[in-house]
């Protein structure tokens, strides 16, 4: 039996004992991250599938729900996230080129943008609270279609009335249910709105934690041309979370706008 020590013999301090070389370590780690993202994809996929099934089932209610959320805030957030993806990608570049300070600043910029996204999201959630669009009757002031929060009970009912008119969108199925029923079914839209954006926001929070940890490590000069795998993996995760939003934004905010003529 002979040995297989064919590759590099210089021991980088970051080389873990189970790997033969830095290349093997980087390949394995990156591959592992992709596999992990695949599981994430399946997790969000389950949620997206359920959303699409209910969208087909309760189409007018989903149009009503969709039109009641703010496209401008959603669009602003999309820009913020794309910008954060850019700074994250630049961080990888900075690490590959051994620019320690640039790495730290870019990571901080990414974190600021991520936090800004969450801030906007919090503002949107607060608006939903104010409009009595929190589904269920455990949190919030009661969903308006179920009689909670009667002062602002108008918004969804009005939209529902409007899309009930077949001329507004040309879907004959809509006339089969009453405006009140449609308004009640918007609660399911909001169940998914909060579940999907909530799960996404949860991933953002974890991402911010990861970035903070990477910032500390980058500050101590751990990453350079020879070793930048953690930055690259953090970047992959961050981009994945962004891409989820790229799908969430049209599915929740945009997809039904034209039906309602907003």
């Amino acid at each position: 039996m002979s040995t297989s020590q064919t590759t590099t013999t210089d021991h980088h301090p970051a080389l873990a004992h189970q790997f033969d070389s830095m290349e093997q370590q980087q390949e394995a780690s990156t591959f592992g991250m992709w596999v992990f993202l695949l599981t994430e994809l399946m997790m969000f996929g389950g949620l997206f599938t359920a959303y699409l099934i209910y969208r087909l089932k309760y189409y007018p209610a989903f149009v009503a729900g969709s039109t009641s959320i703010s496209v401008s805030w959603g669009f602003a957030n999309t820009l913020v996230l794309i910008a954060s993806s850019f700074t994250m990608a630049m961080t990888v570049w900075a690490a590959q080129n051994g620019k320690r300070k640039t790495q730290v600043w870019l990571l901080l910029a990414t974190m600021v943008l991520g936090t800004a996204f969450l801030g906007v999201k919090a503002k949107e959630y607060y608006d939903k609270w104010d409009e009595c669009h929190i589904p269920g009757h455990v949190i919030g002031k009661g969903f308006n279609a179920w009689g909670g929060c009667s002062a602002t009970d108008k918004s969804l009912g009005n939209i529902a009335e409007e899309i009930r008119d077949p001329k507004a969108h040309g879907n004959p199925n809509v006339t089969e249910v009453s405006a009140e029923q449609t308004a009640k079914r918007t609660e399911i839209f909001f169940s998914f709105y909060f579940a999907m954006t909530g799960l996404h926001a949860f991933h953002m929070v974890i991402g911010l934690g990861l970035l903070a940890w990477l910032t500390l490590r980058a500050r101590s000069g751990e990453f350079g041309p020879a070793y930048y795998t953690p930055i690259e993996l953090g970047g992959l995760y961050w981009h994945f979370v962004d891409i989820v939003w790229i799908f969430l934004f049209p599915l929740l905010y945009l997809i039904s706008r034209h039906q309602h003529g907003v």
Binding site: T39, M43, F44, G45, L47, H137, V138, I188, F190
Partner: peptide, 22 residues
């Protein structure tokens, strides 16, 4: 497969905990 059962049980827990319709 496992992430799908995770999201299913999360939705179940949300429905049970917050009485939202799923």
């Amino acid at each position: 497969g496992t992430p799908v059962i995770a999201i299913t049980l999360i939705l179940l827990a949300l429905e049970r905990g917050f009485h939202i319709g799923i």
